[in-house]
């Protein structure tokens, strides 16, 4: 079963445990500035939104890369950057419509979410269930369940 990161901004408190976990997983340090998932805070609306790569099937970054440094991990569906091949040209960062692949000045390469080899550290670290790793074909399952529950109540009320 292919899985996807599923994000529910309504559950996010903005604690940044996900950013810390991501940076530790990939860089061995606690450093949100190196995280591949980013929590945005919209202060005046009181909203926090975690945002990261959604692993497009037909990925702009992959097509744009002139040296084929971005490849598909068939097991997870992740589009993975090969650091040894990447030349740091940043064309992928322009091609990506969502901004979720980014240049790292320390390494001179780009980085993006690779789903941690099928065990995303951000989802494990999230204390509220705002970030989960679920069946890719059923990312809407929880919402469907919620609406289904309401439908039942409505019937019962009549």
């Amino acid at each position: 079963m292919l899985k996807s990161l599923h994000i529910d901004p309504m559950k996010c408190t903005g604690c940044l445990q996900c950013e810390m976990a991501c940076s530790y997983e990939h860089h061995g340090v606690i450093n949100p500035s190196k995280s591949r998932i980013k929590v945005f805070s919209f202060e005046h609306e009181g909203r926090k939104v975690p945002y990261t790569c959604t692993q497009c099937s037909d990925a702009w970054c992959m097509h744009a890369c002139p040296v084929e440094a971005i490849t598909l991990d068939a097991a997870t569906g992740a589009k993975v950057v090969s650091e040894s091949v990447c030349v740091g040209c940043k064309v992928c960062t322009i091609a990506c419509p969502f901004g979720t692949i980014n240049y790292v000045s320390d390494s001179g390469k780009v980085q993006k979410c690779d789903l941690c080899g099928d065990n995303p550290a951000c989802a494990t670290a999230c204390p509220t269930g705002a970030i989960t790793y679920v069946d890719a074909d059923w990312t809407g399952l929880d919402k469907m369940r919620q609406w289904a529950a309401k439908a039942n109540t409505a019937v019962a009320a009549e």
């Binding site: 408190t13 903005g14 604690c15 609306e45 009181g46 926090k48 204390p127 509220t128």
Partner: peptide, 19 residues
């Protein structure tokens, strides 16, 4: 009350955000 909010690294999230 609009939502609760966390400080850095906090898994309690007692903060209040209101309108």
């Amino acid at each position: 009350l609009v939502t609760n909010a966390a400080c850095f690294g906090c898994t309690i999230a007692c903060g209040r955000i209101s309108e």
